[in-house]
Amino acid sequence: MSDPQTDVEYNVRNTVSPELFDEIIAEYLARSESAVRGLRGFTDIYYDPHSQQKLDVWGTSDEPRPVFVAIHGGYWRALSRHHTAFMARALDSEGIATVTVDYGLAPETPLEEIVRQVRAAVAWVYHHGADHGLDPDRIVVGGSSAGGHLTGTLMVPGWQQPLGLPENVVRGAMPISGLFDLRPLVDSFANEWLGLDIERARALSPLLLADGPGPTAVIAVADRDGAGFRTQTKRFHDAWAEHSACTLLVVPDRNHYDIFLDLADPTTTLNRALVRMIDGLAERHSAARALP
């Protein structure tokens, strides 16, 4: 049995009408298809031999580019990389490549395996990105909702070395309207497909693993988001700010679903924050290369 109050706090489908939800999800796909049409890149790359999951690379050029690894949401059980490329053309115009990532979906895929897969995707970018127009020293990750949680699992320490990665492989991060402490979900409707107990939820919670320096982050949430998502975003920002540079961004006039689309619009605060973060990495990268 789920807890009714927890269900209210975390059931963001109830924060928008069914018609608006369907409209926004359709817009994810339509705008993604439009954004990548004619854009230079590589598609249908198997990044993980074990799971046979794929990624796409968009917005490449003749010189290695910083890369934004975009991770889709869908409460870990829906959507795909094809819904998550809408920012690719806007970022291409800024000299930034985009990688969109698929992962196995719950309940068929346990959450531990989903986390392993997105980490494997980052490992692919680091080890093979240079052959696909990507700069492995300028990797930024981001995603919305479940993708925000998965972004958090890429920010924390402790997973990089077994994959042959430096501790700072992720240089910047933008979790958007994510969940960072999964323990409340054990008593929620979402556990129907997650099947978590408290111990597993604790082990999969970035908020509880944020115990050392990590990447620069912009931690964002919609001001019309669900109460649980707003609270968790603030808590994660406060925990991350104890040891790493980060900014809390509450985006006005946005809900849990349409906030993500702001990354496709260069006039929005969210897009500008991402570009500034990546440009800052580029400046530091250029300065480091100039040292004798």
Rank of each mutant, 00 (worst) to 15 (best):
G152R: 10
G152A: 08
G152E: 10
G152P: 05
T153A: 02
L154V: 11
M155E: 08
M155D: 05
V156R: 09
V156S: 05
P157T: 15
P157E: 15
P157K: 15
W159F: 07
W159M: 05
W159P: 03
Q160K: 06
Q161C: 01
Q161N: 03
Q161L: 05
P162Q: 09
P162F: 05
L163I: 02
G164K: 00
L165K: 08
P166Q: 09
P166V: 14
N168V: 14
N168I: 14
V169A: 13
V169L: 12
V169E: 11
V170M: 08
G172V: 12
G172T: 12
I176K: 06
S177G: 09
G178N: 01
G178P: 03
D181M: 03
L182Q: 00
L182N: 00
R183M: 06
R183F: 07
P184R: 12
A190N: 14
N191S: 07
N191R: 07
N191M: 07
D197V: 09
I198Q: 07
I198C: 00
A201R: 02
S205F: 04
P206E: 02
P206D: 01
L207D: 00
L207A: 02
L207M: 00
L209W: 02
D211V: 11
P213H: 10
G214A: 15
G214P: 15
P215C: 13
P215G: 12
